[in-house]
Simulated scan of single mutants.
Amino acid sequence: MDFELTKSQIEIQKAARDFAKGEFDKELALELDQKHEFPTKIWKKAADLGFIGIHYPEKYSGQGLGVMENILVAEELCSRDSTIGSAVVLSSFASECILRFGSEELKSRFLPQVAEGKMLSAGAFTEPDHGSDITFMNTTAVKEGDEWVINGGKTFITNGCLAGFFTVLCQTDPEAKPSYRGISMILVEADRKGVSATDVGHKMGIHMMSTAEVTFKDVRVPLTNLIGKEGKGFYQVLEFFDESRILIAAQALGTAQGAFDRALAYVKQREQFGKKIAEFQVTQHKLADMATKIELARLMTYKAAWNYDQGRIDPKLTSMAKMYAARTAVEVADEAIQLLGGYGYMAEYEVERFYRDAKITEIYEGTKEIQKNTIASAVLGKFK
């Protein structure tokens, strides 16, 4: 058992850290957060340096590396700035569906554009009336000649107003029993006639990311836009979640680390009652608890990434990593605000933004309750 990163992984980690340190300007972050504006220039620079799609094969403009390298980048970027980091690392969201299941034609057309910073991607899975339940879709896709005709709506779609394409879950066989056996995954270009996206409005955190409602009205795409096999969309998206939840765990881990770093720096220089706040035992105990939670989250997240790269799909482990890292992000950011006191509530000191950004990691890619369902199912097994 080896807990050491490889030399290459350490170099990637350092490169991501140096990039974030050089590009993630504090004042710019505050400005973009207030304007709800995507960090386009930083995203393009990240792509130029190979941080986007690092886990794609080289022929698709990636570096041929694994999930482990991808989440190392995510952790570093999010620890430097939770909002900019999240926007950059999720710019390629759901493109893995094409990478893992798509045809060679779809991979060649779309993956290089994502990796090169020319296009954002989005996964259109969640529906207004279903939420976490993806076993049946109101969005339908019907064959007409050599095309799919798609109708329906999706909500809370990350990158929704900015994406160049959507990976859409559609009910292609409404008679299937159970219903999830009739779900397929189809790629829909954002500029297709009948596709519209509307921002969901002001939200608590992740202000630099577009979160949208996406509507499909008689949208026609070629049959060749099918991703994977017809009727296998439900199974494909579950496999995708086993990868994407590791990325969200890394986002949460970085967010927790960033909040901790700021709190640590503050208590080491701030004086109260004639001595540094860090000298008080109550402060030291808080820091000890925070550091321990972060280390536990890191171990689980790294193990989940390593496990995936070994070719093993383990929903229990990925759900544990995502659930625990997300909870850690929320708790550590909350404690960071407490340590800074009134200053922690002020935008200038950043930890309030880290707190706002932390909460989403307990919601998207499956709420913490969904993660508990997955974990419990694996623990209990089948009842006799």
Rank of each mutant, 00 (worst) to 15 (best):
126 T>C: 07
159 N>Q: 14
120 L>T: 06
143 K>T: 10
126 T>E: 07
203 K>D: 15
183 I>K: 10
130 H>E: 05
131 G>T: 08
201 G>A: 00
149 V>L: 06
137 M>R: 14
174 P>R: 14
204 M>E: 13
168 V>T: 11
156 F>W: 15
131 G>Y: 15
174 P>G: 14
208 M>N: 10
196 S>V: 10
184 S>E: 02
197 A>S: 13
161 C>W: 05
151 N>K: 10
128 P>K: 01
150 I>H: 04
167 T>W: 01
129 D>P: 00
200 V>M: 12
149 V>C: 01
120 L>W: 06
200 V>D: 12
173 D>E: 13
153 G>M: 05
183 I>V: 03
193 K>P: 08
221 V>R: 01
199 D>M: 00
183 I>W: 02
131 G>S: 14
142 V>Q: 03
142 V>K: 14
195 V>R: 12
126 T>Y: 06
195 V>S: 10
198 T>G: 06
176 A>G: 05
139 T>P: 09
151 N>I: 12
138 N>D: 12
193 K>Q: 13
166 F>E: 07
197 A>R: 09
142 V>R: 15
198 T>W: 01
157 I>L: 10
158 T>Q: 05
145 G>Q: 08
149 V>S: 09
169 L>M: 08
159 N>C: 14
133 D>V: 02
176 A>T: 03
152 G>I: 04
163 A>P: 01
206 I>T: 09
129 D>I: 00
207 H>C: 11
209 M>P: 01
160 G>S: 07
209 M>F: 03
137 M>I: 13
170 C>M: 03
166 F>W: 04
133 D>H: 05
146 D>E: 15
191 D>E: 13
171 Q>C: 13
169 L>D: 02
